[in-house]
C-alpha cells in the first residue's frame, strides 16, 4: 500500500505545472524515503529530477517500493480539480494499475476521488554524478524568469557568463542584441532577492532559451533559484521546495563544433 497526503494540494499542482510542458509522461518512484522522479524531455536535451521527501508529507506510507507511471497531462487535468486549500492524498495498492487522488476541502464537507490509469513506462534512467561546479549563482527565481523571458525575444540562445564580478546573460539575433548583468549584492532587505555568486573559475556557456523558459515554470515553487555551471557540462537549475524537497533541471549546453 502506498499513501501520501499533503495538507495543501497547491504544492503538487505547482510541481505538475513545473514539469508538464517538458515531459509528457514520467514515473514516480516511491519508497520509504519519499518520491523521486527522473525523466528526460522527448528530445533528450534536458533532464528533470524531482525529490519529495517522506517527512515533507503530512502522512506517508509506502510498504513496498512502487513505481507509478503517469501520463502528466492526465495527472494535471485531475489536479486542476483540486482547490488550492484542499488536502490531497495519492493512493495505490501494491501492483496496482491505477492511482487514486483524493481531495478534501478544509471543512471536510466536500470529498472527491479521481482514479487514473497507470502506464507501464520503460524509461531510461541516468546516473548523475556528484559534481563540484566552477560557478554557482543564487538569485531571485522571479528575476531569473524575467531574464529568460526578456532575452528570448532576441534569439534562440542565451549565453550565461559568470565571473567574480557578477553574472551576465546575453542574447543576439535579427533584431539586435541584449545583455543583462547582475552584480553580486552587497546587502539586501530580503534575502531571497540577493544575488550570491560562488566562483572557482569563470565559466561561459550557451543554452537554448526554450528550455530555460520551461524550467521557469517552477518559479512559484521557490523564491530563489540556483544555477550551477562548469565548462562543457550541463547547467543545473535548482528550485528548493520549502520543507519537502527540490526540483532540478539539467540542460546540455550548446557547443561550438
Amino acid at each position: 500500500m502506498f499513501e501520501a497526503r499533503l495538507l495543501r494540494s497547491s504544492i503538487l499542482k505547482k510541481v505538475l505545472e513545473a514539469i508538464k510542458d517538458l515531459l509528457t509522461q514520467a514515473t514516480f518512484d516511491c519508497d520509504d524515503n519519499g518520491i523521486q522522479l527522473q525523466a528526460m524531455d522527448n528530445s533528450h536535451v534536458s533532464l528533470v529530477s524531482l525529490t519529495l521527501r517522506a517527512d515533507g508529507f503530512d502522512k506517508y506510507r509506502c510498504d513496498r517500493n512502487i513505481s507509478l507511471g503517469m501520463n502528466l497531462s492526465s495527472m494535471s487535468k485531475i489536479l486542476k480539480c483540486a482547490g488550492d486549500k484542499d488536502t490531497v492524498t495519492m493512493k495505490a495498492q501494491d501492483n496496482a494499475d491505477t492511482v487514486t487522488f483524493v481531495f478534501e476541502s478544509p471543512n471536510q464537507e466536500k470529498v472527491s476521488d479521481y482514479e487514473m490509469k497507470l502506464m507501464n513506462l520503460d524509461l531510461e534512467h541516468l546516473g548523475i554524478p556528484e559534481t563540484e561546479y566552477s560557478c554557482t549563482i543564487r538569485l531571485s527565481s522571479a528575476e531569473f524568469a524575467r531574464i529568460c523571458r526578456d532575452l528570448s525575444q532576441f534569439g534562440e540562445s542565451i549565453v550565461i557568463s559568470c565571473t567574480k564580478e557578477g553574472v551576465r546573460f546575453s542574447a543576439s539575433g535579427d533584431i539586435g542584441s541584449a545583455n543583462i548583468a547582475l552584480a553580486q549584492t552587497a546587502s539586501v532587505d530580503k534575502e531571497e532577492e540577493a544575488v550570491v555568486i560562488e566562483m572557482e573559475e569563470p565559466v561561459t556557456l550557451t543554452f537554448a532559451c526554450q528550455y530555460l523558459n520551461y524550467f521557469t515554470k517552477a518559479t512559484s515553487l521557490s523564491p530563489q533559484v540556483q544555477l550551477s555551471m562548469s565548462a562543457d557540462v550541463p547547467l543545473v537549475v535548482e528550485y528548493r521546495i520549502p520543507d519537502i524537497g527540490h526540483i532540478r533541471y539539467y540542460l546540455a549546453p550548446k557547443i561550438d563544433d
Binding site: 528526460m40 533528450h44 536535451v45 541516468l126 546516473g127 550541463p234 546540455a252 557547443i255 563544433d257
Partner: peptide
Amino acid sequence: NIKQKGITGFFTKL
C-alpha cells in the same frame, strides 16, 4: 557553428 548537445552523453546509463 554552435550545436545543441544531447544530455545522455554527459551522464552514465543505468
